[in-house]
């Protein structure tokens, strides 16, 4: 896990949003979306941020690259702390940091031709001459498996999978070193997911890209991620390599996620009974419990878990935040 100088190094990142109410002179109430999260992405590798909705995966990634405000923390990228850069320096840095969004229907401007959509980052950052940009766009279309003659079409003339290819081409246009992939296949049909995942892996192999990959789907994560950070209620509860997470999960929540994910090995015909089903729902991020956030749903919870918040502690190259790990 520990690589020399990771590409992206996030330290103690916290994000909170002020809640309405409480009155003019009353105490301010905050929603703690991300709490003291640290992780790093090595060059040419993929870090998966995994968790259920509301666990803070997207907010973590978006605030790390300053698409959402953060409250505390450091984000080291290319020798700079992104959170301290002035706006123009940050804008220039964006050529190295791109995003693929979840929904290929709402993330492409319906009034622009797709060639212009893919070219836009180059235009905005003033990269190359007009001819060079045009040539780059047709090269990108080939790279993601579209035909250059499709450049003059509009987004609605493409299927969901093709639109996601356009999103990938746009993200690749500035030749970034890190791409944040925010659930890039969860809006796609099952048969199309495989095409996009294979494309992302091929691009990584050919161009040495790093991905920060957000997903709730453990099957997808297992296929594409090298390292995995499991998030629960704004915190990283377990952080380890793919083999460690899937082979020997330490946190009861990771265990529960693995037991909940559908698998072809679990058959109704063979009378499958779930081992570690968790009950209930996560607590509210406005009233964070004083102890472990997972304690209320955890099958291994003891008295200490309700009062004493576990911290993420490293052991043999992996870390887990639990008083009673497996």
């Amino acid at each position: 896990m520990d690589q020399i100088t990771p590409l992206l190094d996030v330290k103690n990142l916290s994000v909170r949003f002020q809640m309405p109410g409480g009155g003019l002179f009353g105490p301010k109430r905050f929603l703690h979306a991300v709490r003291d999260v640290s992780f790093s992405v090595a060059r040419g590798r993929t870090l998966g941020l995994v968790g259920e909705s509301g666990s803070g995966k997207t907010t973590t990634a978006m605030s790390a690259i300053r698409l959402a405000p953060s409250y505390q923390g450091e984000v080291h990228f290319n020798g700079n702390d992104l959170l301290q850069l002035d706006p123009e320096a940050m804008r220039q840095e964006r050529r190295n940091l791109q995003v693929i969004f979840q929904d290929p229907y709402s993330s492409l401007n319906p009034r622009d031709r797709v060639g212009a959509i893919v070219r836009e980052p180059l235009d905005l950052l003033g990269i190359g001459t007009v001819e060079e940009r045009g040539a780059r766009v047709s090269e990108l279309f080939g790279l993601v498996g579209l035909r250059p003659d499709q450049m003059s079409l509009f987004p609605h003339q493409f299927s969901g999978g093709q639109r996601q290819r356009i999103s990938i081409a746009r993200a690749m246009s500035t030749n970034p070193s890190l791409i944040v992939c925010d659930e890039p296949v969860s809006a796609l049909d099952v048969a199309i997911q495989a095409q996009i995942l294979n494309l992302l892996r091929k691009l990584q192999d050919e161009l040495g890209l790093s991905y920060l990959f957000i997903s709730h789907d453990l099957g997808v994560v297992q296929f594409i991620c090298d390292d995995i950070a499991v998030m629960y209620l704004g915190q990283v509860v377990e952080y380890a390599s793919r083999k460690e997470i899937f082979g020997s999960p330490k946190h009861p929540y990771t265990q529960a996620l693995l037991d909940s994910a559908p698998s072809l090995a679990r058959r109704k015909s063979s009378g499958y009974k779930r081992q570690a089903a968790v009950s209930g729902d996560p607590p509210s991020p406005v009233n964070i419990p004083p102890g472990c956030a997972f304690a209320g749903r955890c099958p291994k919870s003891q008295a200490r878990c309700d009062t004493d918040r576990p911290v993420l502690t490293a052991d043999a190259g992996r870390s887990v935040a639990c008083h009673f790990p497996n």
Binding site: I192, L197, Q222, G247
Partner: peptide, 25 residues
């Protein structure tokens, strides 16, 4: 083509590419 949870894949050094169904419905 479904990246379904599978111990053998998760524990391999590099998961093999997924099978693809080309094209769309």
């Amino acid at each position: 083509c479904i990246p379904i949870l599978d111990q053998a894949i998760a524990l391999s050094d590099r998961p093999p590419p997924l099978a693809e169904i080309p094209g769309v419905v």
